[in-house]
Design a protein around this nucleic acid. Structure first.
Lengths: 126, 126
DNA sequence: TACACATTCAACCTTTTGGTTGACAATTAC
DNA sequence: GTAATTGTCAACCAAAAGGTTGAATGTGTA
């Protein structure tokens, strides 16, 4: 089950790593759209857009519903919640660790030299 | 600046899409580690592990600090916060849209057929 | 100084990714 | 029925990703 979960995350993060796909997700966050509508802002071929949407669908980030000769696409919020939860997990780990170290250093003297200099002040997120 | 931000996200999501790299991040969430320590659970070569860590570093998910002949690696929580914030952005868009639709349908009668059946009960996140 | 250790670099290989084009299937419109 | 529209498939291509091995670099240690 862990392996399975891992594969799901592979797909989700991989899908999110492409700017065109993220743009499509933003569009879908604003409004459900057909594939042609999603393709409109891009210069790439329809086939390329179709492939991107298949990637998003396999990653369970979107759901495609056939309506006549169109597909209506919408976000699948559950997957976003799962992926987001993983990242918050990392944040939690981190802050927990920092808290316990802080507790440690207010009770004892450190023996190793400045083991967390600059922690959390390292904000160059260009 | 948006393009720049986009490139940062490309790197972050791309870095997170590999299970070995996520495992390394989990290890770092538990404990700062050297590159050899991070390599230990894996069967791949040191060079491969080194490459993975370079990917994580370029994505600003970790920070590498030279200590003698070792590198001490730690998480960079800022980037996690940024990436996590983006995902919550999607969730927010989604729930906002749902809320407004809900408001809409409690006030008026829908004209289009069941436009959000199964929304948010679609939990097959295998 | 010589050696061992930790990490990276360079060259190479295979698989995956992101794009193209052209043909095709399904659906709607004339 | 025929033609246009929507989307996918198949075959192909170039570039990137992920791995290998072996040499090179930098640092501690005897």
């Amino acid at each position: 089950m862990v392996d399975h979960q891992s594969a799901v995350l592979d797909l989700a993060f991989g899908a999110l790593s492409d700017p065109a796909r993220r743009a499509m997700l933003f569009q879908l966050a604003k409004k459900e759209s057909t594939i042609s509508e999603l393709a409109e802002p891009f210069e790439m071929s329809m086939a390329a857009v179709s492939k991107h949407l298949i990637v998003l669908e396999r990653a369970r980030l979107i759901i495609k519903l056939k309506e006549g000769r169109n597909f209506r696409c919408r976000l699948n919020p559950d997957t976003f919640q799962n992926v987001s939860a993983l990242l918050q997990h990392f944040e939690t780990f981190w802050t927990t660790r920092l808290d316990s170290l802080e507790t440690y250093f207010t009770k004892k003297n450190p023996t190793r030299g400045e083991p967390h200099e600059n922690a959390r002040t390292n904000n160059n997120v260009n």
